[in-house]
Design a protein around this nucleic acid. Structure first.
Lengths: 223, 223
DNA sequence: GAGTGGTCTAGACCACGAG
DNA sequence: TCGTGGTCTAGACCACTCA
């Protein structure tokens, strides 16, 4: 016996899949939908939150619930998102001093002057991904983007988690939707960290792709 | 102004981190906790569901809410999990024929004979990660593990999502806990796929690490 | 100001686990 | 049988958006 919220979610999913509710369309208001399905508003909201966690709808406070555009998955590869056509980017630059997690991440002393670039990408007006990039202030390039000569090695640590409340609200995703969190650290040939980045990609809209080529020496090794 | 559920979740998180609530311990019952925090039971349950999605607690119907054992994060690097000390592995081998998703993944014709290796790793009696590895039957190595000479390139596609119901039950995790899903495809020098793998790593217990070295030509490129 | 979603309450009833 | 979590109700009040 499926619960009411699952039954309602199934019904709405089917309506979206069948095209009865088009991408971008606004759903009836929550009290209206609750009356239609003969349930209380919390139960209906529970059903909607399932759809939100799947990335099917977007809730906008004060405006309504909207059917999301079918997800075009973007692929993150080597620091770039593809395709980057109709992807809008907002950048905010802040100067700050190293503290907390940033100190071991960038391997710098406390209070080292840093520049933070906050990237917020949008796809068709809806937020898509979030990146915070930290660069020691004496290395800040004169013009963006960043990838510069002199880089020798990049380490990317990938984890899956739920977004923090701030991430959820800026990306307008449910706090239960899985995100791909990537911490990227790039060093130059001397081992100095030239850039550290924290990326947050909603799991339903992005993949990350890593390609490695095996050299002959590596190929011969056994376990 | 943080919401009540976030404030309660923060408090419980802090208590778990501080060791006031030990691993394996049962939390007070939900009505009791609700009274303690002076909130209604739905609000308290809302807070608990946040902790559940983070993998901090496990809800067992009819028994209670339990603090999960502290996560020892394992790191996945280039096809291996480290550290592999006290990590137990169960392997099940099955012969089957290519169908569905496996056909494009391995770039083989339909019904090509394949061998599937199902890996289930355990850490301290509790399931840790799940891997399904597919190899064309004529390439199955005489002895395990797999990494063989002749491999030229490996592509790894990483995504974050919630587990399927089967994955949630075999890994004994909540269906709201994010997992890292990695699809790994390895080719030989002729471009033939010699192995494809689907890995599922619970987000609270595993990272994936990718290291790339930049060659001199790459280092010169702009944008 | 009117309409929307966001949060919260104070209950009720059901389903599961263990003695 | 008892205590647990799971679901649901019928409201209340607040915060946000837009005219």
């Amino acid at each position: 016996m499926p619960s009411l919220r699952d039954a309602i979610a199934d019904d709405l999913r089917a309506q979206i899949a069948a095209g009865h509710l088009e991408a971008g369309a606004r759903l009836p208001s929550e009290p209206r939908l609750a009356a239609q399905y003969k349930v209380s508003t919390p139960t209906l909201r529970n059903a909607l939150s399932l759809l939100q966690a799947e990335g099917l709808i977007e809730k906008i406070h004060g405006k309504g619930n909207f059917v999301r555009h079918p997800l075009r998955r973007l692929t993150y590869t080597g620091g770039l998102l593809t395709p980057d056509t109709d992807l809008y980017v907002t950048i905010r630059t802040t100067n700050l001093r190293a503290r907390g997690d940033l100190i071991p991440l960038l391997k710098v002393p406390s209070r080292t002057p840093l520049t933070e670039f906050l990237y917020l990408t949008h796809q068709r007006e809806s937020p898509h991904s979030l990146a915070r990039i930290y660069v020691p202030q004496d290395l800040v390039p004169a013009k963006l983007p960043w990838r510069r000569p002199g880089w020798a090695e990049t380490q990317e640590t990938v984890t899956a988690r739920v977004p923090t409340p701030e991430e959820a609200s800026t990306l307008r995703i449910s706090s239960t939707l899985a995100v791909l969190a990537i911490t990227r650290v790039s060093c130059d040939t001397t081992g100095r960290v030239v850039e550290a980045a924290r990326l947050v990609l909603p799991g339903d809209r992005a993949n990350a792709l890593f390609i490695s080529h095996h050299t002959t020496e590596e190929r011969g090794t056994e376990e």
